[in-house]
Amino acid sequence: MSTLMEFKEVDVHYGPIQALKKVSLSIDEGEIVTMIGANGAGKSTLLMSIFGQPRISSGEIIYRGEDISQKSAHYVASHGLAQSPEGRRIFPSMSVEENLLMGTIPIGMKHADEDMKHMFELFPRLEERRNQRASTMSGGEQQMLAIARALMSRPKLLLLDEPSLGLAPIIVKQIFQILKDVASTGMTIFLVEQNANHALKLADRGYVMVNGEIRLTGTGAELLVNPEVREAYLGGH
């Protein structure tokens, strides 16, 4: 397995506040890696820094052998990285279909019909609402749309920012089941989550982030039984 992406000692500052402190991590091809941590730990900053928003203040982000930390967002997106971001950020005034088409920008429209059909198989709810305005859908449906939109670009690395946020447990379960299906196709996934239980069960490896620093790392199974993780993120059970 070759390394697909690597963070090397990455620092990010928002003015005087340091959001990420010497963060190093790596993601191999075909792996599912998760980053768990509390609200405000710097998880979303980490994902957005891949797209240069914000720019990192030192360190390197190596993707397929190239430092992409100073590249433009659209450059990064057109080289196989797709993100379902924090807060979903679907286009509210567009229909479900149009939102999905926005995912095809990096690869063009040639696979659009085929891929959209595939998305409707993965997320049957989206097919029912294909001509509906995205803003009129429920939170769970919007989350599905954000993931499907990211998949429409046939990414080499799928970045997911808290897909469980604000959703009912039953919907969270559904979404993680779908992610499992996606992962079984060989897709590399980097998942950022507060829901440690679901995330660690899905992931091959995990990192724990506290206040912008990586505190712990290990396989998903190891972290699930780690006393510190259990105490902080799994309610001590």
Binding site: Q53, S72, I105, P106
Partner: peptide, 24 residues
């Protein structure tokens, strides 16, 4: 058209549009 969708996407959420590969 695709250009039109790109315009509307950029209008609705410029940051997200750039993450999707649009040169805003």
């Amino acid at each position: 058209t695709k250009l039109g969708r790109m315009c509307r996407a950029t209008q609705q959420d410029r940051k997200m549009a750039s993450i999707l590969g649009i040169d805003t």
